[in-house]
Amino acid sequence: MILIGENIQILSKAVSEALAGRQARPLQELAGKQAEAGVHWIDLNIGPARKNPAETMSWPVNTIQEVVDLPLSLDTTNPVAMEAGLALCRRKALINSASGTKESKERMLPLAKKYNANVIISALNDTGIPSDAAARAESIMETIDYANGLGIPNEDIWVDPILMPVGVGQQDILEVVEFVRMLPDIAPDVKSTIGLSNVSNGAPRHLRHIINKVMMVVLEQAGLYSAIVDSFDRELIELNAGKKQDIISLIQKVINGEEIEIQTMSPVEKDYYKTARVIMGYDLYSPSWLEL
């Protein structure tokens, strides 16, 4: 799976200080370390960039491109900032993101055509986040249609069905998995992506990684093309690289509903097993799900 590193984002104090103070070093270090960790894209989340939007994006784009050669995913809701960044990207960029809202369709999508960029289209529309797989498909197909009309080819479109936190919408997880599974049939050549870490938002901090990892494997098995992830979760990167086959096959068994002998499992395997059962909706989530 293609991994997009999420660690340059405005909600991080170090990042927001570096952006505000135009300190190149911390940003370049973060970008360099993510590249070393093995992700394939660098996400650059500068928030809504209300003041000086063009400069707020162009400065970090140039700064990061000085030290890494990875393609950039430009992450802002501000089309002026987005355009300023796209104009500077050396490699074909990724717009993160457009959606089915009227404003986004009219202001963000044309930029993908103009700058020959990839674009993430999320399931969001003017009525909110759709509730199930079919409603997500309906919303996204409509936006894809609109994008095609602008001359954006399917190969440049990455769709994001939007993953909710497990503590907010556990049943929603399976809808997202189902959507990912059906995507090749309804929109050939369109790619998929997901904001992976959102699934563990609100969960105890020290337990977020295992939720993220299991969720990634489940979505990968469903055919997910890419995910926006924590670059510094080393085990997650390793899992994605096909290491730890025993863990992957354990999760596969839970996905397939196979009988599993749990007495002989190691504590680590038990944790993955319990988490996979929660992700697959067999057990109701609670913050102490590993303690049962």
Binding site: G167, L284, S286, P287, S288, E291, L292
Partner: peptide, 15 residues
């Protein structure tokens, strides 16, 4: 008013 937290408290109590 949260099913996940109701479950959490019962798990803790149940110990």
């Amino acid at each position: 008013m949260d099913i996940n937290l109701a479950k959490d408290l019962n798990i803790r109590l149940g110990k």
